Computed example of a mutant assay.
Amino acid sequence: MRKIISLVILSLAIAGYAQEKQPTFKAEKDVVKATYYYEDGSIKTQGFFKDKKLTGEWVRFDKSGNKVQIGNYENGKKIGKWFLWDKESLKEINYQDNAIASVNVWKAESKIALNND
C-alpha cells in the first residue's frame, strides 16, 4: 500500500512540474534576452545576459502584468536608479558600486507642486 501511495505522490509531483512554463532565452546581437514565467504562463521577469552576467534593463511584473520593479545591471552588478512599485508607494533606490547609495520613497498621499503658468 505504501508503494502505491508513493507512486501516486511521485506522479502528481512530476505532472505538476511538467506544467511549469520554463524560462526562454533568445540571442539578440551580443546579448541573450531571458524571460522567466509564472506558473500560469504570464511573464514574471525579463532582462539580458552578456557573457553569462546580468546586463542592461531588467523588469519584474506581478501576475496581472503590472511592472513592480525596473532596474539596470552592468557586468552583473546593480547600477543607477531602480524603481519598485507596491500598493502603498514607489521606491527609488540609487545604486553605486553595487551598493545602495540612497533611497527615496513616494506614497500616494505625497503632495506634488505644480506650476500652472
Rank of each mutant, 00 (worst) to 15 (best):
residue 1 M to T: 11
residue 3 K to T: 10
residue 4 I to K: 12
residue 8 V to G: 10
residue 8 V to F: 13
residue 9 I to M: 11
residue 9 I to V: 14
residue 10 L to A: 15
residue 10 L to Y: 05
residue 11 S to T: 10
residue 13 A to D: 02
residue 13 A to M: 10
residue 14 I to Y: 04
residue 15 A to H: 03
residue 15 A to R: 07
residue 16 G to H: 05
residue 16 G to E: 12
residue 18 A to G: 04
residue 18 A to F: 05
residue 20 E to C: 12
residue 22 Q to D: 10
residue 22 Q to F: 04
residue 23 P to R: 07
residue 23 P to A: 13
residue 24 T to Q: 02
residue 24 T to R: 05
residue 25 F to V: 01
residue 27 A to P: 10
residue 28 E to T: 08
residue 29 K to P: 04
residue 29 K to C: 02
residue 30 D to L: 11
residue 31 V to I: 14
residue 31 V to C: 06
residue 36 Y to G: 01
residue 38 Y to W: 07
residue 39 E to H: 11
residue 39 E to K: 14
residue 39 E to V: 04
residue 42 S to Y: 01
residue 43 I to C: 07
residue 44 K to I: 03
residue 44 K to E: 15
residue 45 T to D: 15
residue 46 Q to F: 00
residue 47 G to P: 09
residue 48 F to Y: 15
residue 48 F to R: 08
residue 51 D to V: 01
residue 61 F to N: 14
residue 62 D to K: 01
residue 63 K to T: 03
residue 63 K to P: 00
residue 64 S to H: 04
residue 65 G to T: 03
residue 65 G to N: 03
residue 67 K to M: 05
residue 67 K to Y: 00
residue 67 K to G: 02
residue 69 Q to C: 01
residue 70 I to R: 06
residue 70 I to M: 05
residue 70 I to V: 12
residue 70 I to H: 00
residue 74 E to C: 02
residue 75 N to F: 02
residue 77 K to E: 09
residue 77 K to D: 04
residue 77 K to C: 00
residue 77 K to H: 02
residue 78 K to F: 04
residue 79 I to C: 04
residue 79 I to F: 03
residue 82 W to D: 02
residue 83 F to T: 05
residue 87 K to F: 06
residue 90 L to I: 12
residue 90 L to W: 08
residue 90 L to E: 08
residue 91 K to R: 15
residue 91 K to G: 07
residue 96 Q to M: 08
residue 97 D to K: 05
residue 98 N to L: 03
residue 98 N to W: 03
residue 99 A to W: 03
residue 100 I to F: 08
residue 101 A to C: 06
residue 101 A to R: 13
residue 101 A to F: 13
residue 101 A to P: 06
residue 106 W to Q: 08
residue 107 K to G: 05
residue 108 A to N: 13
residue 109 E to L: 12
residue 110 S to Q: 14
residue 111 K to D: 14
residue 112 I to D: 15
residue 114 L to W: 09
residue 114 L to P: 09
residue 115 N to H: 12
residue 115 N to K: 11
